[in-house]
Design a protein around this nucleic acid. Structure first.
Lengths: 194, 194
DNA sequence: GTCTATACGAAGATAGAC
DNA sequence: GTCTATCTTCGTATAGAC
């Protein structure tokens, strides 16, 4: 594998994640992802021999890792800071794209694959959600929140952010994210000062 | 329009909503919705002359109305009862379908249509979210929550439920919904007893 | 009014030329 | 190793027979 190959591969994955977040899983075609990365169609199947399933799974994991890294970094300043960064990250993506982009992990979680059984991309999406929840829950526990409540709050935060991103897209407004942000912030503040 | 026509039409709309909630917007084809309703392909275009855009828009509104009716009914017993019914409704859909069905309104909100501009289905989705929020916010205000907080809480509830439904699908578990339910319940209880 | 047959495009995937 | 050309299937939509 040459150096430029690696770069093309990464461009394809990142581009696929972006397209999935806009059009959804099914409407993101291998053809278009290749064109977007200025790579011929055949190359995509060279880099991703298992086809679309492999590409979208990597796109989900890529988004998951990228977001988790940001979350991990910001959580060092505490749960409220982490929550703020998490919300700001998605707000930027939604607003900067003119309410066209969203979360590719959510896209995968909403569209059932044609085949009957355990699609790799959906399993990856579940893992990504769990990782984000674990990061948040861990930080909450470190700040005195009891484990059960920490886990529930973490789930609520991730779910609320994902749902709000979709609502902002539909309404073409950042208002839902701002409303959710304020309520979640109060909730986390109250939890860690109990 | 004959009596049986109306029935077929309704079957097509309800079937489309179900398929959208499972496969997503783009993977729900007119062909399959027709087959699902045991109607020939041509009939679908007879009932929905504007094609897929019209059908999916009606499916979104159908889901919105159906859910709003349930919400309105249960909110008569107060915000906590309304929230509980709202959560129970989606929990049933997700669990009874073996984690295959979800919310068609969310599906539409996550997938950008191929064309450039204001797709009717997305506008309908935004309206549905707003209606659900308004119902919840109204009930909260009636129970003494100040308008601004009532609106923010309502947004949080709708967003969290939508996001949690998607998470349950990905994880193939009702756990996220149960966690979210408990936290939202506490939050609403605290708000109305301030 | 209901439906069959079909036009046309685009999808996923692959064969095989370079 | 890289890419073009193509196979097959399925999508939306419509024309026109009953």
């Amino acid at each position: 594998m040459t150096k430029s190959s690696t770069t093309v591969r990464q461009r394809i994955v990142a581009g696929a994640a972006d397209m999935m977040s806009r059009r959804g899983l099914n409407a993101t075609s291998i053809r278009e992802t290749a064109k977007h990365a200025r790579a011929p169609l055949g190359s995509t199947y060279h880099y991703f021999p298992e086809g679309k399933q492999q590409l979208v799974t990597e796109a989900v994991r890529y988004t998951g890792e990228w977001t988790a890294a940001s979350l991990r970094r910001e959580l060092e300043a505490g749960p409220v800071a982490g929550l703020g960064a998490f919300l700001a990250l998605w707000r930027r993506i939604v607003v900067d794209s003119g309410f066209r982009a969203g979360c590719p992990v959510l896209a995968v979680s909403v569209e059932e694959p044609p085949t009957d059984e355990p699609p790799a991309a959906l399993l990856a999406a579940a893992d990504v959600f769990t990782e984000w929840e674990n990061l948040l829950a861990g930080s909450l526990r470190e700040h005195g929140v009891e484990p059960r409540k920490a886990a529930q709050l973490a789930t609520l935060v991730v779910a609320a952010v994902e749902g709000t991103v979709a609502m902002c897209r539909a309404k073409r407004s950042p208002q839902p994210l701002d409303d959710t942000a304020e309520q979640l912030r109060d909730l986390i503040l109250a939890a860690i000062t109990d």
